[in-house]
Nucleic acid binder design. Structure first.
Length: 341
DNA sequence: GCCAAACTATCCTTTACTTCA
DNA sequence: CCTGAAGTAAAGGATAGTTTG
C-alpha cells in the first residue's frame, strides 16, 4: 500500500476539484487572484519564529509580484461582461474572497448572508464574515436542519478560534490550539490526496481558501504526512508479524517432517540405495520439483503423488503472498533428501 | 570552481489541547 | 463530574538541499 505522490508544477490545479463532483464546478466555483495585498495574513513579523518568518517571506514574495491568477480551482476567471458562474459559500471564507452568485459585486465587497437561497442553506456552508459569524448565522437557523445547524456552529467555532488565535498572536500571547472545522479538514484532505506536499503557492492558495494562516496549512500537511507514515508503519508491522507467524509454523512443520524422514531412514535402510535426488524450485510456479540423476547420467524430473510419501501428507500451502513455497505441491514432490547425516 | 554562511523545506519528537467513552 | 485514551494542532530542534557572496 503506497501513497501516490504527485509533486506537480506550481500551476497544476488540484485535480480532486475536477474529480469530485461535490466539490467541483458548481460548488467550488470561485477563482482567486493573489495580488499585492494580503491583509488577512500580513502581521508583525518580529514575534515570529524561523518557520513563521519563512512563510512571511513566501507571502512577501508573492505579494511583491503582480497580481497572479491561480488556477487551483475548476474554472477560470470570468471575463469582464460575462455571467459569473455560481459560487460556493464556504463558512470559513471571508467576504473579501467570495461574492454573491449572480451579483455584479466584485470580489472583496461585503456579503449579505440574508440573501442566501435555500440551495445555499442546504449546502450547509453559508458564508459569513468571520467577525460577524454568530449574528449572521442566527438569522438563518430557523430554516436549517439540525445537522446543518451543527455544522454551522462548528464553522463559527472554528472562525472564532481562528479569530482568537490571530488576536492572541497579534497581542504576542501564545496562540491557543484551534480545531479545524470539518469542512476545512475535508478540503485539506482532498488536497493531500492530490499532493502530499505543497509548494508555496499552493500553500498560500489553500490558506486563503480556508481562511487559515499558511503556517497552519503547512503544519497540517506535516502532521498528515506523519499520520500516513505511522499508518504505513502499522500496516508493515502487521504484515511482518503475519510473515513471522507463518514462517514459524512452516519451520515447525519442516522440523516435524525431518524427524519423520529420519525415522523412515532408520526403518528402511535400502532407501540409501536410491539414486541421488536434488530439489529444484520451478522459477515460474515457485514449487519444488524432484530431479533424479540415474547411474547412466540421464536426469528425470518426477512428479509423484504426495500422498504416497508420509513426509508430505501434512503439507499445506503458506499464506504469504509472493513468497517461495518450499514444499511439494500437486505436480512436484519432495523426496527424502537423505544427505549423509 | 570551491567554500562557508544563510536560507529553506521537511522530518521527528514532544507538548498541550480537545473530544469522547 | 472526573479520568484516561486517542486524536491532533502546534512548537522546536535536527538535518539535508539550495542559494549566495
Amino acid at each position: 500500500m503506497e501513497l501516490a505522490l504527485s509533486l506537480g508544477d506550481t500551476s497544476k490545479p488540484f485535480k480532486f476539484l475536477d474529480k469530485n463532483p461535490k466539490l467541483s464546478s458548481k460548488d467550488l466555483g470561485f477563482c482567486m487572484a493573489l495580488g499585492s495585498g494580503f491583509p488577512a495574513t500580513t502581521r508583525s513579523q518580529d514575534k515570529l519564529g524561523s518557520h513563521e518568518s519563512n512563510y512571511q517571506d513566501d507571502e512577501r514574495r508573492v505579494s511583491s509580484d503582480p497580481p497572479l491568477q491561480l488556477d487551483l480551482l475548476p474554472f477560470s476567471p470570468v471575463p469582464r461582461g460575462h455571467q459569473a458562474p455560481s459560487r460556493i459559500h464556504f463558512p470559513w471564507l471571508t467576504d473579501n474572497l467570495v461574492s454573491e452568485p449572480g451579483s455584479t459585486d466584485a470580489p472583496g465587497r461585503g456579503f449579505d448572508v440574508n440573501r442566501l437561497s435555500m440551495d445555499d442553506a442546504d449546502e450547509g456552508a453559508a458564508i459569513s464574515s468571520p467577525n460577524s459569524a454568530a449574528s449572521s448565522f442566527q438569522m438563518d437557523f430557523g430554516i436549517r436542519s439540525g445537522r446543518d445547524r451543527k455544522r454551522d456552529l462548528e464553522a463559527i467555532d472554528a472562525e472564532r478560534a481562528s479569530s482568537r488565535a490571530s488576536d492572541d498572536e497579534e497581542n504576542g500571547l501564545t496562540r491557543k490550539k484551534l480545531r479545524l472545522s470539518k469542512e476545512q479538514s475535508a478540503f485539506l484532505e482532498e488536497s493531500f490526496k492530490e499532493h502530499n506536499t505543497l509548494n508555496p503557492k499552493q500553500k498560500l492558495a489553500l490558506a486563503k481558501q480556508l481562511n487559515l494562516r499558511p503556517r497552519q496549512v503547512e503544519v497540517w500537511f506535516q502532521n498528515r504526512r506523519a499520520r500516513t507514515k505511522l499508518k504505513q508503519t502499522e500496516v508493515d508491522c502487521e504484515y511482518l508479524k503475519r510473515c513471522c507467524e507463518t514462517l514459524t509454523e512452516e519451520n515447525r512443520r519442516l522440523q516435524k517432517e525431518l524427524q519423520e524422514l529420519r525415522a523412515l531412514k532408520t526403518s528402511q535402510p535400502f532407501y540409501m540405495q536410491l539414486p541421488a535426488t536434488t530439489l529444484t524450485m520451478c522459477p515460474s510456479c515457485e514449487r519444488v520439483a524432484t530431479t533424479t540423476t540415474s547411474s547412466s547420467g540421464t536426469t528425470t524430473t518426477t512428479t509423484t503423488n504426495p500422498s504416497t510419501t508420509t513426509s508430505t501428507t501434512n503439507s499445506k500451502p503458506l499464506s504469504l503472498p509472493a513468497k517461495p513455497r518450499l514444499f511439494p505441491m500437486s505436480h512436484g514432490q519432495v523426496q527424502p533428501h537423505h544427505a549423509a547425516s
